[in-house]
């Protein structure tokens, strides 16, 4: 995607075009409900934390096995309104990923295909700006899975708590030299980012718990760094 990492106005243009061009009615509805605008403050923006658990890192060989979402805003994380879907993988499970996700073959044997839950998923996300930790996974896997099934793409702007964290810790030259000389590197893993804000450790790899963890992290980043009036257009990517 050429828009990736570019300024807010590019996303606005992209979204406008997708509202017109999306062919699948579910995607069409999703893009039409996508109300986040670059000029909105974070305080005004309805948000939804999104986490996708996969069997690996390569969308061509690995599959999504669960998706979790937790709607929230800057005051409240609505964990009680969370949704989570287990999905039947497109490619066979590799045994190491089974232990990683606490999900077994039996759990997935009767799980639906992404196509069957897509309407639910997109409705849950409707009108909310997605928040993820490390957008590359969510974006590449969703894009690949949707393109395989519908023949068109599902790409949308997100707030990436990992990218924000990297931005906060953009280091001066001296620090980079120190790092180059063997100092430790700042970890951007979700748990490590959370720990910097006094957030507790959660056991990872439940999609909906990771989504909760991501929502909490964004609230902490806003409280500590960004402020409630930060503009969506400066943050989405």
């Amino acid at each position: 995607m050429t828009t990736q990492g570019s300024a807010g106005e590019d996303w606005a243009t992209y979204l406008a075009s997708r509202q017109q061009a999306a062919k699948d009615p579910r995607l069409q509805a999703f893009f039409q409900a996508f109300t986040a605008r670059p000029g909105m403050t974070l305080e005004e923006a309805p948000l939804i934390a999104l986490d996708v658990e996969t069997t690996g890192l390569d969308p061509r060989r690995h599959s999504i096995i669960s998706i979790g979402v937790v709607p929230f805003d800057l005051d409240r994380i609505r964990f009680s309104q969370r949704r989570q879907w287990l999905l039947k993988p497109r490619f066979p499970l590799e045994s190491h990923s089974v232990t990683l996700h606490h999900i077994t073959h039996a759990d997935l044997a009767h799980a639906p295909d992404l196509d069957e839950v897509l309407e639910d998923l997109l409705q849950a996300m409707a009108g909310r700006l997605p928040v993820v930790h490390y957008r590359s996974i969510e974006r590449r896997f969703l894009e690949s899975a949707i393109r395989f099934r519908l023949g068109e793409s599902l790409v949308f702007p997100v707030i990436d708590t990992m990218a924000l964290e990297a931005r906060f810790h953009r280091q001066p030259l001296s620090a980079r030299i120190r790092r180059w000389l063997g100092g430790g590197q700042l970890s951007l893993r979700l748990q490590d980012c959370r720990a910097r804000y006094g957030l507790p450790g959660y056991s990872p790899h439940h999609a909906v718990i990771d989504a909760l963890a991501t929502a909490e992290l964004l609230q902490a980043q806003v409280a500590a760094r960004l402020g409630r009036n930060a503009r969506v257009g400066e943050l989405w990517c």
Binding site: R76, I77, R78, S80, Y197, L212, A215, E216, Q219, A223
Partner: peptide, 12 residues
Amino acid sequence: DSVDAAYFKAGS
């Protein structure tokens, strides 16, 4: 099953 969550920075 029913909890929501909220974060508060020290001093707020």
